[in-house]
């Protein structure tokens, strides 16, 4: 997990600096928001000059998927109580959820197990972002070809997240079937492209956040009716 987090974290640190954030702001954002997709979305929207309200709403809409994680894991977290629930919830990222869901199918997790798992993500994420934010500018200054290459870290991360969010057979029950998810993605992408070419990039994200789920729900109902 650490190996997976580090390159993305360094890339985020570089992207945050290129978007005009200070090292402190990049690390502070990572520590408070602590959601890769929301963080990259914020940086992308900030660099495109989107208003703070649009950036904030987009990031929060993007994090709505987290609502599903706690209830799905709760049967395996019965031994975690009180303030520990709040601590565990802070680190419930996409990757932690996926790993925990896979490992805890047959057993209960205690607080220490969850802390160990979450630390394996939190430590490389924040330290990688700090390293990228501090050294990224120097690297891109000495090797200019690195800058455009690093700029592709953002789309590459979105590709990775998208693929991970398209339900496999074992996850289909949670997130809808594969056809509906692909339909939602295509609808959202089309709407976003339309808004982009109309010069309304930041609003396109919000519009896609509505159009995609509408298409997904319709496809899912249509698929269920056909069975």
């Amino acid at each position: 997990m650490t190996a997976g987090y580090l390159p993305a974290a360094v890339a985020f640190g570089v992207a945050a600096r290129e978007a005009g954030l200070s090292v402190f702001e990049a690390v502070f954002m990572a520590a408070t928001v602590y959601s890769g997709a929301s963080q990259f979305a914020l940086v992308g929207l900030i660099s495109s000059g989107a208003p703070a309200l649009v950036a904030g709403v987009s990031a929060l809409l993007l994090s709505l998927r987290h609502v599903l994680y706690g209830p799905a894991l709760a049967p395996s977290l019965r031994y975690i109580r009180g303030w520990r629930v709040g601590v565990v919830a802070y680190g419930l990222t996409d990757e932690i959820f996926a790993v925990a869901l896979g490992r805890l199918r047959q057993r209960q997790a205690n607080f220490g197990w969850m802390m160990g798992l979450e630390a394996a993500a939190w430590v490389p994420w924040l330290s990688g972002i700090a390293a990228g934010a501090i050294a990224g500018a120097a690297i891109t200054k000495k090797a200019p070809v690195v800058a455009p290459a690093l700029s592709f870290a953002l789309p590459a991360l979105f590709v990775a997240l998208l693929v991970s969010l398209i339900p496999s057979d074992s996850r289909a029950r949670m997130s809808g079937n594969r056809l509906a998810s692909v339909g939602a993605i295509l609808a959202a992408g089309t709407v976003a492209a339309g808004f982009y070419f109309a010069g309304q990039e930041s609003w396109g994200v919000l519009a896609a956040g509505v159009a995609g789920p509408v298409a997904g729900v319709c496809l899912k109902r249509w698929g269920n009716r056909g069975r």
Partner: peptide, 23 residues
């Protein structure tokens, strides 16, 4: 309702962000 709606919100927004990032 959550399963039907929220499950699609994340992928949809990421798709929109991907489109905006690659165009």
């Amino acid at each position: 309702a959550m399963d039907g709606w929220l499950g699609f919100v994340g992928p949809s927004i990421i798709a929109a962000l991907l489109v905006a990032a690659v165009l």
